[in-house]
């Protein structure tokens, strides 16, 4: 109950903050808030696999980056009027966000299906390392793939469009991202309560029992992993659109580590945990980054303290132990 209250306060803050920033004429703060919302979305995706499914994936940057490259590739082809492929049929690039999102979600879901099917053959520490390795594989592929910028990445000049909105206005793009986050959170909440979500949670706590009643835990976990990858991929497309830039760094393992930090800082397995974690991270980055160039030292120490002494993350601290 208190968890829901904390969540409601977070959402109220996400609505109120940009309105205040708009009134105070601080467009930079709105961009900062957009960054937090998009990273929160990526973390909500990981939370599905990690918090609900217990799948410690250290390779989610792969899906984040695939989403980003889906945006970069489609938009750069639209920009240069060169079709993606001409044979056997012509595929043009696009500047339309809904189409880009669809491609990002499908591409990252497909990648998650492949990576998940192979990685779920292993468990425990092997799973962590094999997901890390798949992430690195895509990272090095992106670096050596010179057709789309290689190491330098890929810039687009204008943010892609959404029907009825001017996405170049910070607050309109922010609103769009926030609505997506809310829709995904609602989906996540419904999923946890569905038979699928309950079985997934049970499979994390006691896989033998779930198998005994005749449920294939690996298929269950694979489905969760694919959904999780697709959500993170969508976040990647938005993130690339926010920066109008995509580069291999979106695929780097530090990115995977950061997405995982959002989830744990906020509280794994909690609906609003990743949202709280991402907001805290972006706020800290902004505040500490202003104080010292070496703010990662403080972030590291803070993270250590949270892992060692605060079980359940920030939401756990505010809302008490998980049921």
């Amino acid at each position: 109950m208190r968890g829901m209250l904390v969540g409601a306060m977070l959402l109220a803050g996400l609505v109120a903050f940009p309105i205040w920033a708009q009134a105070a004429d601080e467009p930079f703060l709105i961009t900062l808030a957009t960054r937090a919302v998009i990273l929160a979305l990526a973390a909500v995706g990981l939370n599905l696999a990690l918090g609900q499914g217990g799948l410690v994936s250290l390779g989610h940057a792969a899906f984040f980056g695939i989403g980003g490259y889906a945006m970069g590739i489609l938009a750069s082809h639209a920009q240069s009027y060169a079709p993606l492929m001409e044979w056997p049929f012509v595929i043009e690039g696009t500047r339309s966000m809904p189409v880009i999102w669809l491609v990002a979600v499908l591409a990252s879901a497909l990648a998650a299906l492949g990576i998940g099917a192979l990685s779920l053959r292993t468990t425990g520490v092997y799973f962590i390392m094999i997901t890390l390795a798949f992430g690195q594989m895509l990272y090095y592929f992106a670096i050596s793939w010179t057709a789309y910028g290689g190491e330098d990445g890929l810039s687009i000049y204008v943010r892609n469009g959404f029907p009825g909105l001017n996405t170049l206005v910070p607050i309109e793009f922010y609103g769009l991202c926030l609505v997506i986050l809310l829709v995904v959170l609602a989906f996540h909440a419904a999923l946890i309560r569905s038979p699928f979500g309950l079985a997934l949670n049970a499979a994390r706590q006691s896989p033998e029992r779930v198998r005994t009643v005749g449920i294939d835990t690996r298929r269950l976990q694979l489905a969760a992993f694919v959904l999780s990858g697709a959500i993170t991929g969508l976040a990647g497309a938005l993130f690339a659109d926010l920066n109008r830039f995509v580069s291999p760094s979106m695929l780097s393992w530090q990115m995977s580590g950061e997405i995982m930090i959002f989830v744990i800082l906020g509280g794994a397995g909690r609906l609003f945990g990743p949202v709280a974690g991402a907001i805290m991270f972006v706020a800290l980055e902004h505040l500490l980054g202003g104080v010292s160039d070496y703010w990662h030292v403080f972030l590291g120490i803070l993270l250590l303290l949270v892992v060692l002494f605060v079980r359940g993350g920030v939401i756990g601290l505010l809302a008490g132990a998980r049921r």
């Binding site: 990690l50 410690v56 250290l58 425990g124 520490v125 962590i128 580590g257 995982m260 930090i261 744990i264 794994a268 070496y294 703010w295 990662h296 030292v297 972030l299 590291g300 120490i301 993270l303 250590l304 892992v307 060692l308």
Partner: peptide, 21 residues
Amino acid sequence: HLDQVLATFALILVFSEGTRW
């Protein structure tokens, strides 16, 4: 393992930035 990954990831941040300092 999750806690181990995070805590040692935090150590990387401390060591890398500390060395840069």
